[in-house]
Design a protein around this nucleic acid. Structure first.
Lengths: 252, 252
DNA sequence: GAGTGGTCTAGACCACCAT
DNA sequence: TGGTGGTCTAGACCACTCT
């Protein structure tokens, strides 16, 4: 048995077969938007891969790859012998290789950053281990407070290797750290993150405008470029009443 | 230019071309083990896809898929025009659709579970919303304490829809909840997780043997089967000095 | 038995990077 | 200029599910 098309006729009428954007990506991103906006409703059954391919003039592997992207995101479910369906559950976007600054902007908040300090210091043993540089190397240590719509949300402490010694406080007020690195042609390929919790220490409660000793949500991250070099090491603490980490897990 | 083989000659000598295990999976899992065990060292360059295919008697798409699995896991990095390399950074396994019970077992700890209560109650508004059942439906509410090697690590509160009303405390002492669901043929396809932090409430500090009002790491999860039905809704709190969430993020 | 997704093959052309 | 991964095609066979 086959299924009627569940998307508007013209949805894929303007595929660009010559440009740099892969066909599978054009398909999957259009489909993703239609699903997230509800144009294709939860529970809807898609046509089978071959039928879609014929309608769009694409080979089956290309259609398949587009669909697989959405399966990996948790938007679609496939079962052999059954078909492909739009998932019923609400799906959150995965934790991504972006900064808090970009996260907030995307959600429509207005993030501001106060740079508390930009120091150039000799790496102690701990910092050297995290950045994978020799002890004593002169590194940059940044401390910032990020607010959304005027409310302090997080304290961001970052360590940078020597090559970024010229980054200034003024730069960091305007852009997120990751934007700035990207503008310098630095591509972050991999990051290891650890999410935990602890009490406030030192002046953290003042900076975040919460009670002394109250809980903080923490995230430690080490980011690497394609060559395996450490680009950045961060220790962030978030106000747990204002911030949490959401993920959607998909079984393989 | 081409590269010398970086893995032992016999590593892929016993591929099973008739069994149910996909060839790409046989390749990727063997490669993963070799990388994690250091048999293939960090920074090593792999041969190109076509050469590997010829050596193993496989087509390029099959080899490519095997490699892609490891790229998605953050173990390999590929760059066009350059080649494929083993990543230098330590890579942690991603947060998975498994239970804490299985996580601990895998790391070699001995998890024990104390079942505090198994109740069958009418769902209030909050519980009904989380399980997506009508208010007043009789659901199961489970409360457990999980310990590793005798130390309490987490309080696990779970809500189950009516179909699991027959699960007993005795069952839960022996197996993780997820194992039990799997044994009943329930496949969890998707889960939404939120990780946060808060202070202890009520008797939580006693159960976890920590100070009253101290920080907890929390994880809320709603798990769905392939049909979008809610299988389980959980609220877990962890001792932040004993537990944290690790992830490796990979840029696409 | 009919229909579906899962896997695999054998090619092709292109964009990017190094030399 | 040669080597690499990125994309795409046009088939094929199989395993699974429903009726």
């Amino acid at each position: 048995m086959s299924t009627d098309p569940v998307w508007p006729e013209e949805m894929f009428s303007d595929l660009d077969r010559t440009g740099p954007v892969p066909l599978y990506y054009q398909i999957s991103s259009r489909l993703e938007r239609a699903i997230r906006e509800g144009v294709i409703p939860a529970g809807a059954r898609l046509e089978n891969e071959i039928a879609i391919g014929e309608r769009l003039g694409l080979s089956r592997p290309t259609v398949r790859r587009a669909i697989q992207e959405l399966v990996d995101q948790g938007l679609l479910v496939r079962r052999r012998g059954i078909g492909t369906q739009v998932v019923q559950a609400r799906v959150s976007r995965p934790v991504e290789l972006t900064s808090l600054h970009e996260d907030l902007t995307r959600v429509g908040h207005h993030p501001t950053t106060e740079v508390l300090s930009v120091e150039h210091v000799a790496a102690d043993e701990d910092a050297a281990a995290r950045l994978q540089v020799p002890v004593g190397t002169v590194i940059s240590r940044i401390r910032r407070v990020r607010s959304a719509d005027g409310t302090p949300m997080a304290i961001l402490e970052n360590l940078l290797p020597p090559e970024f010694a010229d980054i200034t406080a003024a730069d960091l007020e305007k852009q997120g750290l990751y934007e700035m690195l990207r503008a310098r042609g630095i591509t972050i390929k991999i990051a290891n993150q650890t999410i935990g919790a602890r009490r406030t220490h030192g002046d953290e409660h003042e900076l975040l405008d919460i009670a002394k000793g109250s809980p903080l949500l923490t995230m430690d991250r080490v980011a690497f470029d394609h060559g395996g070099r450490v680009v950045e090491a961060g220790h962030h603490c978030y106000r747990p009443d204002l911030y949490s980490f959401e993920t959607t897990l998909v079984s393989r």
